[in-house]
């Protein structure tokens, strides 16, 4: 019976991801194209006017920033428990991508906050915990790069990633636990979303597109690292 770990074989991963990648790219292009088209043809919001369109790049960036960290945490757990090199590679590969999406969430949020709230930045629970996510990503990348030995770098950064995962529920529930300037949850709430369907559709498509884009980037980075490790093995064989 084939198990999940069959695909953890680097050779199998290269074959599978190689044939999957073009489809992922197509899916990302299609959903992003449709999302942009819908996003720029919606009417403005009754309160926020045309700035509601910032939501279509802000919420997906924030979603992928957190999803990427979740993915990194799961890969780190597999790395620690199963000691599989591919899990180590997968965790490390997700970090810079997650950091870029986190930065985009912060920047687009700032561009939305200035015209609506009247401030580029406030130190409320949501914004502060999200800034912490960026710092955790950067610290993870620095830690991973600082340790020379591949295996030890993977172990140490996996421990760091798993402990840092506590920030994810803090970000999610910050708007419920504390008073914040950031508004409450619009989508995953009791009684259904409080976003009208004309806004929900482009938001959903853009979020899907951003998710596909993350998997495209992540897959390519994992492939690069597998190739680099093969090169290193070849070099070591020559030297030895």
């Amino acid at each position: 019976m084939p198990s999940l770990f069959e695909f953890a074989n680097p050779k199998k991963f290269m074959d599978l991801s190689g044939s999957l990648l073009p489809w992922l790219v197509a899916a990302a292009a299609l959903t992003l194209g449709a999302g942009l088209l819908l996003g720029f043809t919606t009417p403005p919001d009754y309160q926020q006017g045309d700035t509601v369109r910032i939501m279509f790049v802000h919420v997906p960036a924030a979603w992928v920033a957190m999803m990427a960290y979740g993915v990194m945490t799961v890969a780190s757990i597999f790395g620690l428990v199963n000691r599989h090199p591919l899990a180590d590679i997968a965790a490390r590969a997700a970090a810079p991508i997650g950091a870029v999406f986190t930065a985009l969430g912060l920047i687009t949020g700032s561009l939305w906050g200035r015209p609506m709230w009247g401030a580029w930045w406030v130190w409320d629970g949501r914004l502060t915990s999200f800034l912490l996510l960026l710092l955790i990503y950067l610290a993870y990348i620095a830690l991973n790069d600082a340790i020379e030995n591949e295996t030890r770098a993977a172990r140490a950064s996996a421990v760091f990633a798993i402990v840092g995962a506590v920030n994810l529920p803090i970000i999610e529930f910050s708007v419920q636990w504390w008073t914040t300037l950031h508004q409450g949850e619009s989508i995953l709430r009791k009684g259904g979303p409080t976003i009208a369907p004309v806004f929900l559709w482009p938001l959903f498509l853009m979020a899907l597109g951003y998710t596909f884009l993350f998997f495209v980037f992540w897959t390519i980075r994992i492939r690069s690292e597998i190739l680099n490790r093969r090169s290193r093995t070849l070099l070591e064989m020559r030297a030895g």
Binding site: P43, D45, Q47, W117, G118
Partner: peptide, 14 residues
């Protein structure tokens, strides 16, 4: 300083 806090509702004017 005065900041506006908006709610989580989004809908078109119609």
């Amino acid at each position: 300083q005065v900041l506006a806090k908006h709610d989580e509702k989004y809908m078109p004017p119609e």
